[in-house]
Design a protein around this nucleic acid. Structure first.
Length: 317
RNA sequence: GGCGACGUACCCAAGUGGUUAAGGGAAGGCUCUGCAAAAGCCUCAUUCGUCGGUUCGACUCCGACCGUCGCCU
């Protein structure tokens, strides 16, 4: 007798509203898996409705990781995610179960598989100083500084892109080395085991329709209440979790600074823009198996695609 | 029916004799090495309701027509 034991990770990625969470749970049930969320905002406790977090019933069906795992005030990043997610996936495999990485944050998925460079991480002190410089002399000044110190890295930075310039200067200041060189010469840990990556796709109009539909269903009413609760609990608007789409706008709605019509319009528009950026990101990612999210045999199809992740081992051996 | 105002891109809208016909939104595309649902970038009217006229030259001035809105009857 032989038993199939997973030896790699199944990734399910795609734009928002393509049904990643549902599919991940269905496949996990079928293949005895556990879900690791690759989502920048579902990690935050209390941020539920606006982040399209998997529902309680979904969460109860199969073990989930990195959902509700951080306080909304805590920073969370691609690097932290990648390290923790790789560790979790290793542990799931060690238990003889299939890790399923599911989420829409392309940067996190790339950091998980390809790794980030080995070097200084974010440092708030340095950042504050650089931000102050940027506020006084302008973003273009920061970008020019990068151009002087690391012309190669600067080529990828737009003249007004203060955020990216600050990160590069931060690396320079903290390591004394050029980021472009560190990126090339000091790759950090990556996912070395096998993987199958599935990209859920939907025609633009269908996707936008689903986004609008999701907007109509219930959460319109839940979101303002949720935001009131968060604010009452003392979560500041500057908390990282409040950067999620819709949350600051909802705070404005709740305080009366934004009309309901304007609020709805912004949420829908921002979500559409987000979906578009996600598609752009995944379009560029290699090794993805594109699958129509509305095909009737979706679960069977994905389970079939995941078969190479199971190596046959002989019992007692 | 009369009088008046207006008609510029998918939407809002500036321009009022010589401009490559502003700007914003939407839409589409791109970039991405520790805040990424972030941040930045690019594309998007050979043409101004239509037809005529004046002029070297018209989105701009004149006329007619069409359309929209308002007021009056």
């Amino acid at each position: 007798m032989s038993a199939a034991r997973p030896n790699g990770v199944l990734a399910i990625v795609g734009a928002t509203a393509t049904g990643k969470s549902e599919l991940a749970v269905a496949v996990a049930e079928r293949l005895s898996g556990e879900v690791v969320s690759a989502d920048a905002f579902a990690v935050y406790r209390g941020f539920d409705a606006g982040t399209a977090k998997p529902s309680a019933s979904l969460l109860s069906r199969v073990p989930h990781h990195l959902v509700d795992a951080r306080d909304p005030r805590e920073p969370w990043s691609a690097g932290e995610f990648a390290t923790e997610a790789r560790r979790l996936c290793g542990e799931i495999l060690a238990r003889g179960r299939l890790p399923i990485l599911a989420g829409g944050t392309g940067f996190y998925v790339r950091a998980f598989f390809g790794g980030l460079f080995e070097g200084p991480r974010r440092d708030d002190g340095v950042r504050r100083a650089l931000e102050a410089v940027g506020a006084r002399r302008g973003a273009a000044f920061l970008v020019r500084m990068v151009g002087l110190l690391d012309p190669e890295a600067a080529r990828r930075v737009g003249a007004a892109d203060a955020a990216r310039a600050i990160r590069l200067l931060e690396i320079l200041l903290l390591s004394g080395e050029r980021p472009s060189r560190l990126f090339r010469e000091r790759p950090g840990p990556a996912w070395e085991k096998p993987s199958v990556k599935v990209l859920l796709t939907l025609p633009r109009e269908v996707l936008y329709g689903r986004i609008a539909q999701r907007f109509q269903s219930g959460f319109v009413n839940e979101l303002p209440a949720e935001v009131r609760r968060l604010l009452a609990a003392g979560v500041p608007l500057t908390a990282p979790a409040f950067a999620a789409i819709g949350y600051r706008d909802t705070a404005a709605l709740v305080s009366g600074a934004l009309s309901e019509a304007e609020w709805k319009e912004r949420l829908l528009r921002d979500t559409r823009h987000y979906a578009k950026r996600q598609e752009a990101w995944f379009r560029r990612e290699s090794g993805l198996v594109a699958v129509r999210a509305d095909r009737p045999d979706l679960v069977d199809f994905v389970a079939l695609k995941a078969r190479p992740l199971f190596s046959v081992t002989h019992e007692g051996g």
